[in-house]
Nucleic acid binder design. Structure first.
Lengths: 195, 195
DNA sequence: CGAAAATTTGACATGACTCAACTGGAGTGG
DNA sequence: CCACTCCAGTTGAGTCATGTCAAATTTTCG
């Protein structure tokens, strides 16, 4: 895939929420770096400054953190048309606490946050698009908290594979377990109980 | 307190992130309704459409949902300079799934979402302020998910009273328990273990 | 094929839940 | 001012879900 055909995917996605302003596509092309990632690639390590954000064309990535006990906790999965970065670190201007790892070969667009902010300044109408992204993200975090509060482990798992069937295919069980907040063993048992 | 002195609080708060455009204060005043709430007042009930959002001047509110088993789960606490509403329902144009309750006598500014959107259109520069709010909200949800994943109940409680000492004063134990995702009994035991 | 990683399974420990009883304070009305 | 009620909080006993540790099995991939 060429850079320009990759960027077309992003433009097409943006065009679903707003009219594409003249010049936007070229501007995006000028700041985009298209990357092919292989399973296992680490594109952000905790402790680094968060300079980049990624838009996923296909494949799957996850962000996770490692706690004091050495256990990993998955914060986010990202597939087609999602963004991934360490948002919390970037928004609060701190060093990354997350790692970001490719878990299924992926095409992504890499952009510098600073370049993206420049795009937002230059094309004010896409604020709407960006606001939509933030809202979508907010909804998904809210939903996750709600599930955690009111559902048991089995119900959370069922909801997960219902809401994100694609991710359920890509991700390993231990990744899903670490997203649901249970041990891999519990997830394994829970699945075998489903019949 | 008069309406205009209440709105000054909001304007002052906004002025911390952006330059106040000419006319903004009057515009805000024209759409703001200042309300005094008493402990126990319910200002949103699940099932209703979400037409309003609230900015808190002082006091404390919480949003919660009731699950099938009749158990309450606190989604958000809000004190000074926070907004509260059923964001998920509003952003996704659905009926409220949350209730919002005043838990300590409060002054709030009530606004219609539609009027607020009008303000955003009319004063594009406050998009920055709004974006900041969304980011702040996103960070707090992220932090909460992270705590839930990597901390045990006791550590979550300690972190809670550290991060939100004011709320810890206002809120009842059962509210805090339902926010942390544990039973009131467990919270009680946990606290007595702290010495 | 063989090594390394992921998953499954078993045995056991434990944290958190439920149900129920009891305590203590706040508010109300006689 | 006391008696009563109501509700939050505490405490105890028993249960259940989930965690841990370890071993066995299966899958992945060089």
């Amino acid at each position: 895939m060429t850079d320009s055909s990759i960027v077309e995917n992003l433009v097409h996605w943006i065009s679903k929420s707003i009219e594409i302003p003249v010049g936007l596509e070229d501007a995006l092309l000028s700041i985009s770096v298209s990357k092919q990632l292989k399973k296992g690639d680490l594109i952000l390590k905790s402790g680094e400054m968060v300079k980049k954000t990624y838009f996923i064309i296909d494949g799957c990535l996850r962000s996770y953190l490692t706690d004091q006990a050495g256990k990993e906790h998955t914060i986010q999965f990202a597939t087609e048309n999602w963004w991934i970065s360490d948002f919390r670190a970037y928004f609060s201007k701190k060093a990354a606490s997350l790692n970001i790892e490719c878990i299924a070969n992926a095409h992504v667009i890499e952009m510098n946050w600073s370049d993206l902010d420049w795009i937002y300044k230059r094309f004010p109408t896409i604020e709407t698009f960006q606001k939509g992204n933030l809202e979508k993200h907010l909804i998904s975090l809210n939903t996750r908290i709600q599930s955690q509060l009111e559902l048991g482990a089995e119900e959370r798992y069922l909801k997960f594979i219902l809401d994100y069937p694609k991710i359920a295919e890509y991700a390993q069980n231990k990744h899903i377990a670490s997203y649901l907040g249970i041990s891999p063993q519990s997830l394994s048992r829970l699945k075998s109980n489903l019949e």
